[in-house]
Design a protein around this nucleic acid. Structure first.
Length: 561
RNA sequence: UGGCCGGUAGUUCAAUGGCAGAACGCCUGACUUUGGAUCAGGAGGCUGCAGGUUCGAGCCCUGCCCGGCCAGCCA
């Protein structure tokens, strides 16, 4: 399904065109610029794949640069986590750069703009600045401090830096146009006062550059040629260019190009919403397997290869849309189908007694570890006269198209014999509690010598040899495909049944040899990742289910059993 | 309401002004010791709407409709 040659996206086309026209001296340099105020999610993965991918394909470089201009929200732990996640995804973040590396240069440039009369210190408070900015239809009004002399501004700026003022007392603003149709051009703030220590520069600074004042200049300093960002920064491009045009840059002027961010159905991607889930205890933390964070997906068992293949597949465009999670899941299945070893596990056990099995006898059945990969070898699975099978694999009164076990019916036991259900013990409510069955000793090869067929193969675990394991089943975190649409609170559609814990699934002994973090297929059920927590009882997270035709039939009938 | 950007199959994306395609999903069949995987076939479109230019428009022009982003001292 990775399918052959996908047409090039508009960004790669542009990069190639730049190479042909000799723009940027033939160089290509990109950057991935996260703010270290949270963890990365799959939306960032799209950007990472794009930035690192474009650079690699063009023989250029891509650097990780932390956009650490807001000390109130950022910390070193987030920065370390981000670098770790990038490496896990399969890219080399190298020694990261930081916007804070350029604070001194930025300050020098700010002084230059002041000297040219292109920036000024404003004494208005935040509310006044906001009120005087005007709105979409009415122009802003000039600040009373807009026409201070360069000398006065220079002195004030120095005092701001020296800590002579309290938070919010003054800001430095670019002097552009208070009636500009682009609101971002109405004298944007360049520096604000924050007496907050920064995780890298400590208390060295108490004025911090805004995003707009730092970003393009950081790009220019590093020699970035193609500054790729998401669509919501489109109006910022005009400002990006304005700053760069008015500064004496060391090299070519970088160019900002916007692309659509990734959205997925049934989940949220904004840091605010993610934070609300974590802080509200609705999930266990940033690495909860239900979250679209890279740490969550890793714990869930999503392989980085599948995430990269997904990102390559969806491409990049300027159209803001929403991908179905099912597409992501199909890439996860494709990967695990090829590499995951198979094991048997019974999640909701139903007891089977084989009446014609020799009492006390155990036989070891050979089972292939991965039918897609002969080199994965085989293993021995203990078989005896008392088994667990899946409750869902039996029905007392089976509807049409249900091919599994039922009274009088015969199925094949995976890697073992045919099994016939002779009798059912039920409880007071009519539920099956034990099946009395018989096996056909002639069918050990998986076929009946007399040529009779079975419609289904069922997985099983020998009760005597079964081990217990905890299993976490996951469903959509949000029942609404577009949580938070129409301005509603996304939490309104939080799915309280998004996790179901099975305390003691019955599993074959070999399953417990699975190393932490590894993903195996529970035959007929799905892919499951062994939890990475050390020392605890074995726990498996369901990464994704198998494609399930019977579930589709049930769904089409209206969800019933 | 002003500015900018978008609108092609259910979804995401293609299509030098020249027969509207792919992937995932869906449906049917084959095969099968996973109702998995694999293979073969199929359905699915007034290219947002209306005009215009042209031999010819998804593409160019005009108007309209719908959606996104922008009025933080967040990024």
């Amino acid at each position: 399904m990775p399918a052959g040659a996908r047409p090039l996206d508009f960004i790669r086309k542009q990069v190639i065109a730049d190479g042909e026209t000799g723009a940027f001296g033939g160089r290509v340099q990109t950057r991935f610029p996260p703010e270290p105020n949270g963890y990365l999610h799959i939306g960032h993965a799209k950007s990472i794949c794009l930035n690192f991918g474009v650079a690699a394909e063009a023989g250029g470089v891509c650097r990780l640069r932390f956009d650490d201009t807001n000390p109130a929200a950022e910390n070193a732990a987030y920065a370390a986590g981000i670098a770790e996640d990038i490496a896990w995804l399969g890219f080399e973040p190298g020694a990261p750069a930081h916007a804070s590396d350029y604070f001194e240069q930025l300050y020098c440039w700010a002084e230059q703009l002041v000297r040219q009369g292109l920036a000024y210190v404003d004494d208005q408070d935040a509310a006044a600045i906001s009120a005087n900015r005007g709105d979409f239809t009415t122009p802003g009004v000039d600040s009373p401090w807009r026409d201070r002399s360069p000398q006065e501004n220079l002195a004030l700026l120095a005092e701001m830096r020296a800590g002579r003022f309290g938070d919010g007392e003054k800001v430095l603003r670019a002097r552009i146009d208070m009636s500009h149709p682009n609101m971002l051009m109405r004298d944007p703030v360049m520096y604000r006062i924050r007496h907050v220590p920064h995780f890298r520069t400590g208390t060295q600074w108490c004025i911090y550059p805004t995003y707009d004042w730092a970003h393009g200049q950081s790009d220019a300093i590093e020699g970035v040629t193609h500054s790729l960002c998401t669509l919501e920064f489109e109006p910022n491009r005009q400002l990006y260019d304005w700053y760069l045009e008015h500064l004496p840059l060391p090299g070519d002027r970088p160019r900002q190009t916007e692309f659509a961010r990734l959205n997925l159905t049934h989940t949220v991607m904004s840091k605010r919403a993610l934070g609300a889930l974590v802080d509200g205890g609705l999930v266990d933390g940033w690495d909860d397997p239900r979250l679209p964070t890279l740490r969550g997906l890793r714990r869930r068992g999503y392989p980085p290869e599948a995430i990269r293949a997904f990102c390559a597949h969806i491409g990049v465009a300027r159209l803001n849309g929403t991908h179905e999670v099912e597409l992501l899941e199909s890439f996860v299945r494709t990967h695990h189908n090829r590499f995951a070893q198979r094991r048997m596990a019974v999640l909701r056990p139903l007891e089977v007694v084989i009446q014609n099995w020799p009492v006390g006898h155990t036989e070891y059945r050979r089972a292939v570890n991965n039918p897609e990969d002969a080199s994965a070898g085989e293993r021995q699975v203990p078989f005896s006269g008392r088994l667990w099978i899946e409750r869902d694999d039996f029905m007392i009164d089976p509807p049409r198209k249900f091919y599994r076990l039922a009274p009088g019916r015969e199925v094949r036991l995976r890697a073992s014999y045919f099994l016939r259900c002779d009798d059912v013990e039920t409880d007071a409510g009519g539920e099956a509690v034990r099946l009395h069955c018989s096996y056909d000793p002639a069918t050990g090869g998986g076929h009946a010598p007399d040529g009779r067929k079975v419609r289904a193969t069922v997985h099983w675990v020998s009760a005597e040899h079964a081990r217990d394991a905890a299993v976490a089943l996951y469903d959509r975190l949000f029942s609404d495909p577009a949580p938070g649409a129409d301005g509603r609170d996304p939490l309104e559609s939080y799915n309280p049944a998004s996790r179901e814990l099975i305390a003691a699934a019955k599993v074959e002994p070999a399953l417990l040899d699975t190393p932490p973090g590894a993903v195996v297929q529970f035959e007929r059920l799905g892919y499951f990742a062994r939890d990475t927590a050390a020392g605890a009882a074995p726990l498996f997270h369901r990464t994704v289910g198998l494609r399930d035709e019977w579930a589709n039939i049930r769904r089409r009938r209206g969800g019933g059993a």
